[in-house]
Amino acid sequence: MLLVIDAGNTNIVVAVHDGNHWLGTWRLSTSPQRTSDEYASTLLTLMEKQHIPIDKIDKAIIGTVVPPVLYQLLLLCRQWFSVEPLIASSCLDWGFEILVTNPQEVGVDRLLNGLAAYTLYDGPLVVIDLGTATTFDVIDEQGNYCGGVISPGLTLSLEALHKAAARLPKIGIGRPHSVIGKETIGAMRSGIYWGYIGLIEGIIKRIQSEHARKLTIIGTGGLAPLLAEGTTVFTKINAELTLEGLKILAHRNLIK
């Protein structure tokens, strides 16, 4: 069985795949201070509840954009699962070319999303990942990574608005009933939600203008389903795209 670890800026997603199905998926908060033993304490309990035998795990892969957590995740795999994990990086066999000036600068999460999206949906396509940052990644007809766009994430923008403007409260994210807000909170929610809808639609329109063929638009990340309610841009929503990418990458590089 394959242990898959996707460590993002906010959450670490851990999953187990038996070669045919995902047996379990769990989310832990990302914290550079958390030790491998602390991760193991939580994770082993969750796995036990779903009757997943840890001694059957014989392969592991880690993808992360948060270098400070990598060492403890390495220890987690080595000490608690007795496996040496594959670390996702631009140096591995991805099965496609990374057509940017410096491939080492591209976050592995973006490459993983592109790999999974092309495998599942074919190209050309754009993956929109609505996480801590909002990223747009372009994959061509051959599956090559062509580059993309990075903008601040929706939650990050809300935090910045609250911190920079003393009289604006901290609010939750939701789809407003109308664009015009009748009070401060309603106006903020409208600005954030419809502002990001406008950002998504505008950037996709400009990316499409640079391509002769119609692009498939794949949404991923925790906020993708919410924002998909307000636009027809998305062709498909797949919240677990990065996990799929890690599984595919592991098969290319670990499972021969």
Rank of each mutant, 00 (worst) to 15 (best):
V83A: 09
D93K: 14
R78N: 09
L70Y: 01
V66I: 15
L75P: 00
N102M: 09
C91E: 15
E84L: 12
W94I: 08
A88Q: 11
V83G: 07
V65H: 02
G95Q: 12
S89C: 09
T101F: 04
V83I: 13
V100H: 06
I98Q: 08
T101W: 00
L73G: 01
L75R: 03
T101M: 05
E97I: 04
L74Q: 03
V65F: 05
V65N: 06
W80C: 01
T101E: 15
R78T: 04
L73A: 04
E84Q: 14
P68H: 08
D93L: 12
S90G: 02
P68V: 06
S82A: 13
T64H: 04
F96E: 09
N102F: 10
L92I: 11
W80H: 15
S89Q: 08
S89L: 10
D93A: 10
N102P: 01
V65L: 08
L73H: 03
W94T: 07
L86C: 09
L86I: 11
W80N: 10
C77S: 05
P67G: 09
T101C: 00
C77V: 07
Q79R: 14
V69H: 05
V83F: 11
W80D: 05
L86T: 09
V65W: 08
W94R: 06
A88L: 12
P67S: 11
E97C: 06
P67I: 10
N102G: 00
G95T: 13
N102S: 13
V66E: 08
D93W: 08
Y71N: 01
C91R: 13
S90D: 15
C91D: 14
W80V: 03
P85G: 05
W80Q: 11
L92Q: 09
L75Y: 03
T64Y: 02
S89I: 11
S89Y: 10
A88I: 12
P85S: 09
L74M: 11
C91Q: 14
I98G: 03
Q79W: 05
V69C: 04
L92E: 11
P67H: 13
I87F: 08
E97H: 11
L70A: 07
I87N: 04
P85Q: 11
L99R: 15
S89H: 12
N102I: 12
L74P: 00
L70K: 03
V83N: 08
Q72V: 01
R78K: 14
T64D: 04
P85H: 07
I98D: 07
W94S: 06
W80Y: 15
D93P: 00
A88P: 07
R78Q: 13
S82M: 11
G95F: 13
V69M: 05
W94N: 06
L86P: 07
V100S: 06
N102R: 12
I98F: 05
P85C: 11
L74K: 01
A88K: 10
G95H: 12
N102D: 15
Q72L: 04
G95L: 12
